[in-house]
């Protein structure tokens, strides 16, 4: 049982990494472009609201971050702290939920 859980977490970790890699690049490039272009917050908002691609991309980004970060955090806690399976799992789930909530509030604001 625990073997299958580990396996699924491993698979999710890899899949979310594959999603994250291009999204991080897109995020960085657009950010640099916006800042270099001297766009104001209002101008950026008007652009993100005009095109559904941005909320969709960032929505996906947040799911990937929540999964990838939580699984990584669980490993770190299990190896580096006295927290073992259950404790580390609980903290990781809470972290995942927090990222999702904060993330979707932000996406709601730019949509």
């Amino acid at each position: 049982m625990s073997g299958r859980l580990e396996l699924w977490l491993f698979v999710l970790q890899r899949l979310s990494a594959m999603v994250l890699a291009p999204l991080v690049l897109i995020h960085l490039v657009t950010m640099i472009y916006a800042v270099q272009g001297g766009l104001s917050a209002a101008e950026i908002l008007s652009r993100t609201q005009a095109n559904a691609i941005w909320p969709v991309l960032y929505g996906l980004f947040i799911v990937a971050v929540a999964i990838h970060g939580a699984i990584g955090l669980r490993s770190i806690l299990r190896e580096m702290t006295p927290l073992r399976d259950k404790g580390a799992g609980a903290v990781a789930v809470a972290f995942c939920a927090l990222v999702l909530i904060l993330g979707y509030r932000a996406v709601g604001a730019i949509a």
Binding site: S2, G3, L5, E6, L7, L9, F10, S75, D85
Partner: peptide, 12 residues
């Protein structure tokens, strides 16, 4: 594979 896929196995 089953024996090494546990939480202290290869995925760690």
């Amino acid at each position: 594979l089953k024996a090494v896929a546990g939480d202290a196995g290869c995925h760690a």
